[in-house]
Design a protein around this nucleic acid. Structure first.
Lengths: 119, 119
DNA sequence: AGGTTAAATAACCTTTCGGTTAAATACAGA
DNA sequence: TCTGTATTTAACCGAAAGGTTATTTAACCT
């Protein structure tokens, strides 16, 4: 157990073409040809991208006649999110510090009012 | 503007060694040698991993005498989180459907009680 | 100045990635 | 059964990834 399922997911997401494909699939199922349409790229290239996404668990594919409709697999993104969650406090903490800083600036502001502003 | 800052971040996260380094840095600053210690890997290899993380904006490095302490840059992870947010409804939606399904199962359950259970 | 420690760089190697074109496969429909 | 349409597979290519060892740089400490 505990194989590294995250690496292939991150690797799949590291390509803008594949992220664009995911964005498209977030709107609904689509065939390979439809998915390929926006890109200036050969069909085999798209086919390879889809295979990468599939192996990462980010998409799944059905079969309808000669079409192989693709759909997004949200669970895979949820897995990524769960990894990220471990770090959430880090950026929220930093945000808190920024808020503290801004609050301090604001409480100082009245004193500063007397000074002229640089043109 | 609008350069692709996400690809290098995802690419950096696609390696388990680098994710382990990040996990370590989430606990606090660390020198390169300290970071290298848990891995069965040469120092230059670690050095390269750190460079990848740095270029992705995931870590930053200081200078203290002959040490180059590394620290995590939470903002980069926040950026990844923001990308992921666009898809959140997808997995939450699916979870809702599962909950609906389980609720239906439960309301059906009393009827099922009368049947014997398979051994 | 000389020696030690911390880290980066250079040069190299093998594997993987992202693309190509050409050929093969799978199915639908006349 | 032949033809067109959708998609994959095969073979190839150059570039990038991830590792190595050997060398270099940088800063500290006598």
């Amino acid at each position: 157990m505990a194989a590294d399922h995250l690496s292939p997911k991150f690797a799949a997401l590291a390509d803008p073409t594949r992220r664009a494909i995911l964005a498209r699939l977030a709107l609904g199922e689509s065939s390979v040809t439809e998915l390929a349409e926006p890109f200036d790229m050969s069909m085999p290239a798209i086919s390879k991208h889809l295979k990468v996404l599939e192996h990462a668990g980010l998409i799944a594919r059905g079969r309808e006649a000669q079409w192989r409709p693709c759909r997004i697999e949200p669970q895979a993104l949820k897995d990524v999110n769960e990894w990220l969650e471990e770090y959430r406090r880090l950026w929220e903490q930093r945000l808190d510090r920024l808020e503290d800083y801004l609050r301090k600036l604001q409480s100082k502001a009245p004193k500063e009012k007397k000074r002229g502003r640089k043109k």
